[in-house]
Amino acid sequence: MMLRNWSVRIGSMVLVLLVVVALAAPWLGTVDPTLFDAASRDLRPGQPGEITTLEGDTVKHVFVMGSDSYGRDIYSRVLYGTRVSLIVGLAVALVALALGIVAGLVAGYIRWADGVLMRVMDGIMAIPAILIAIAVVALWRASLTSVILAIAIPEIPRVTRLVRSLVLTIREEPYVEAAVALGTSTPKIMFGHILPNTAAPLLVQGTYICAFAILLEAILSFLGVGLPPDIPTWGNIMAEGRVQFVAYPHNVFFPGIFLAVTVLAVNMLGDGLRDTLDPKMTQGRVRTQVLDEHA
C-alpha cells in the first residue's frame, strides 16, 4: 500500500541506491579520499593524474569528477561523503526522536514536569537552530558526535511537542483509561500503549529531520564550523571548492548535486509516507513544524 505511492517509491529507490554507493565506495574505483598529490591539483573532470599512496608509491589515476586544490579525487570524496551525510542524517533523526519521545512522554504524562520541560523547550525553540549549531560546534571541538548533537538539539522541542500533543489525545482514549483503571504502571502505559500509536507521525517527522540534518551539516561545513575538513563530506568539499568556484565549478557542482538529490529523496519519502500513513494530515502541517529549522 505504501509502495504504491510514487513519491515513496522514487524516494526509497534513490535512498537504497545511495546506501549501496556509500557501502560499496571502496570497490567503485575510488582511492583514499584524504590522499592528495600537489602534482594533480585542480584537474578538470576526466583528466588523468597521479596519487601517492600511504606507502609512498605513486600510482596513475583518472579523476572522473576532477580534483580539488589539494589534488584530491573529487569522485572518491563525494562517494565517501555519502557515508557521512547518511550517517549524520540518520543519527540526528534517531537522537532527536529518542530524546524528544522521552521528553514528550514525560511532559504529556507527568503533570508537574510538564511546565518546566515545555518552558525549556520553548527557550530552545526561540533560538535560531543554526545559531545553536554554530555555537555548539565552534565552541566545542568539531567531531562527528558534536555535529550530530549540535544539529539534534534544536530538533528535540518539535518532537517533544508532537509527542506531547499525541499523548494528551491518546490518554483520553477508552483503552488507555481502562489500562489506568486496571492499575497498569505508568511506564508500561507510556511505552506499551501510547508510544505505538505515535509511530506513524513520528516516522514522518523523522524523515523530515533527517533531510534537514543532511542540509544543515553541509551548511555548517560550508560556513567553516562543521566536521573537520579532513573528513570528506559534501559540505567540506563545497567549502573548499567555493574559493575557486568560477574557475573550477566541479568542486561545488558534483557534491551539490548529490546533496540536493539525497535531500530530495528523503523529502519525497517523507511526503509520500505522510500521505499514505495519515491522509488526514493537512499538507504542509508537519512540514511547517520541520521548516522551523530550515534556518
Binding site: F36, A38, A39, R41, S69, Y70, G71
Partner: peptide, 8 residues
Amino acid sequence: PFLRAQVG
C-alpha cells in the same frame, strides 16, 4: 610538497 600544496 608543502609549498606545492599550499602556494601552488
